Simulated scan of single mutants.
Amino acid sequence: MSEVKLAAETRTEFGKGAARRIRRDNKVPGVLYGHGSDPIHITLPGHDLLLALRTPNVLLSLDIEGKNELAIPKAVQRDAIKGFLEHVDLLLVKRGEKVSVEIPVHTEGELAPGGNLLEHVLNALPVEAEATHIPEAVTVSVEGLEAGASVLAKDITLPNGVTLAVEEDAVVLQVLAAQAEEAPEGAEEEAAEAAE
């Protein structure tokens, strides 16, 4: 997993008005916290942060006025309509430190024939991993699974150094039987009349 370097500035203005001014300058207000230290209120470059956050659990290397800090995103607030970043909470991490994160679950392969449906019970798998080696995702093969089959957390192969942060018997994926559609009442009679 690569680090994304961002230049951050500390900020002393707070509140809605200050946040609006920051966003108008194409920057994003944020808070950096963790390791028992006082929260640091920062401003980050908007476009660079938006690109960095496309990678799940991205590791950010922040240059805060000459001091370098490592952080991972904990909470990201976006505008509900336009989607731009409004605020970000970042958690301080250290190299070698284990952190709890959720990683996306991707699937590959085809289910057994029959029109069955694959349900993602967990879209993201809670795991513990070293802060500098967080996997971007896990891939699970669903090749040939039939209705009623489930994939449990313990069935997923994790990279070295990554451990589950959820019960081993937690259902991650399950295959649901295809539902036969019932014709509405009178449909057969209408079809027979139309055929005549």
Rank of each mutant, 00 (worst) to 15 (best):
D25E: 15
V99Y: 05
L51V: 06
K154F: 13
D48L: 10
L91D: 09
P39G: 10
H120F: 11
L70R: 04
V172F: 06
A195M: 04
Q174S: 13
G109Y: 01
P113V: 03
H87K: 05
R78Y: 09
G66D: 08
K27S: 11
T163L: 04
L173W: 03
Q174R: 15
D89N: 12
V151A: 02
N123L: 14
A165F: 11
R11K: 01
D48C: 00
H87D: 12
G15N: 06
L111R: 01
S2Y: 01
I64R: 05
I134P: 08
G66H: 00
A191K: 00
N160V: 07
L118A: 05
E108C: 01
L32E: 05
R95Y: 12
L158A: 08
A153Q: 10
L117S: 08
R21T: 15
A129I: 07
Q174W: 01
R95G: 06
I42Q: 10
K98Y: 14
D63Y: 11
G30T: 01
I72L: 14
V162L: 07
E110W: 03
L49F: 08
I156L: 12
P135M: 13
G34T: 02
A147R: 01
E185L: 06
P73R: 10
N160H: 11
E168N: 14
G30A: 09
K94A: 04
I81T: 13
E102F: 13
K154V: 14
V31D: 00
I42S: 09
A177S: 08
A124T: 09
Q179E: 11
I103F: 08
A180W: 02
E97S: 08
P56Y: 02
E190S: 11
T10Y: 06
G34M: 01
D38F: 07
L51F: 07
A19M: 09
